[in-house]
Computed example of a mutant assay.
Amino acid sequence: MPKSKRDKKISLTKTDKKGLALKQKIVEDVRNCVEKYKSIYLFTYRNMRNEKMKEVREEWKPSRFFFGKNKVIAISFGKTVEEEVEENLHKMSAILKGQCGLLFTDCKKKKVVDWFNNYSVEDYARSGFKATETVNLKEGPLTQFSHAIEPYLRQLGMPTKLDRGVVTLLRDFEVCKKGNILTPEQAKILELLELRLATFRLILKAKWTKGKGFEEFEVDDEEVDLEVGEEMETNDD
């Protein structure tokens, strides 16, 4: 009986015992998923939101989402034809770069592609986000704010005062400029103004299916992460 490709020995050097055990567990989990599911989808993301990602995981059960170190996942798949655990899977390893995640699933390609293309959630931009538009406020009353918040607005850098109990802007004020990186103060002001400039999206990069091989999707050059994303946990349980 031929030896299974999954039984290939792997080398995880320069790692302490605790780190080595964790990496070996990741390799084992990934290879179990390769064996269990028909297809693997590689995706990148914009404006990661862990709480939204938890909802996505629930929606896609029993499919499985997986996040981990690219180098370790590449070892799990195999980096070369000789090392790969399934035919053509080394091609997936070759494009594991940047912010990536995996979806292991038995769902049809059309369902997966349609869902990814249509899924998006608007949210407040965070510090480190590249502003997608310029936001200006005109001099005068800001009636959307309670008088109690006026001192906090000044702390955030807004030129305000109370005029007969109404929060008033003393001069025109630029909250943020398109293309510039938001400061924590700017991000908070946008949230107080209820302006959602960030959109959480998952963007497909490639697909691998047993017996059918590897397929790479075209990704728009602008489809890059516009802020420092949240660190994703490897374990999705």
Score class of each variant (00 low, 15 high):
Val56Glu: 14
Lys205Cys: 13
Val81Thr: 08
Lys178Trp: 15
Gly101Cys: 00
Arg49Lys: 07
Met232Gly: 01
Val175Cys: 11
Leu182Thr: 13
Lys109Pro: 11
Lys17Leu: 06
Phe145Thr: 11
Glu218Gln: 14
Arg201Cys: 07
Lys38His: 06
Lys188Gly: 05
Glu35Gln: 13
Ile40Ala: 02
Gly140Ala: 05
Ala74Gln: 08
Val219Lys: 11
Lys69Tyr: 04
Asp221His: 12
Arg201Ile: 07
Pro141Gly: 07
Lys5Gly: 12
Pro62Gln: 13
Ser39Leu: 00
Val175Tyr: 12
Met158Val: 03
Tyr37Arg: 00
Glu87Val: 10
Ile75Thr: 14
Ala198Val: 06
Thr44Lys: 02
Glu231Leu: 02
Ile181Glu: 14
Tyr119Trp: 10
Ala187Asn: 03
Asp221Tyr: 07
Asp29Leu: 09
Ile26Gln: 01
Gly101Phe: 00
Ile75Asp: 00
Leu103Asn: 04
Lys97Cys: 03
Trp60Glu: 10
Phe200Glu: 06
Arg31Val: 05
Lys91Gln: 08
Asn117His: 11
Cys100Phe: 00
Thr209Ala: 09
Ala21Lys: 10
Glu231Thr: 13
Gln155Phe: 03
Asn235Gly: 07
Tyr119Met: 09
Ser76Ile: 06
Gly157Val: 06
Lys177Arg: 13
Gln155Tyr: 06
Thr132Lys: 01
Lys69Pro: 05
Phe214Leu: 10
Thr199Pro: 01
Pro141Ala: 07
Ile181Lys: 11
Val34Asn: 04
Lys91Cys: 04
Cys107Asn: 09
Phe200Pro: 11
Ile149Val: 10
Val121Asp: 05
Thr15Trp: 08
Lys14Glu: 14
Ser127Lys: 06
Ser146Cys: 02
Leu190Gln: 04
Lys54Asn: 15
Glu58Ile: 11
Asn117Cys: 09
Lys110Ser: 13
Ala74Val: 06
Phe65Ala: 01
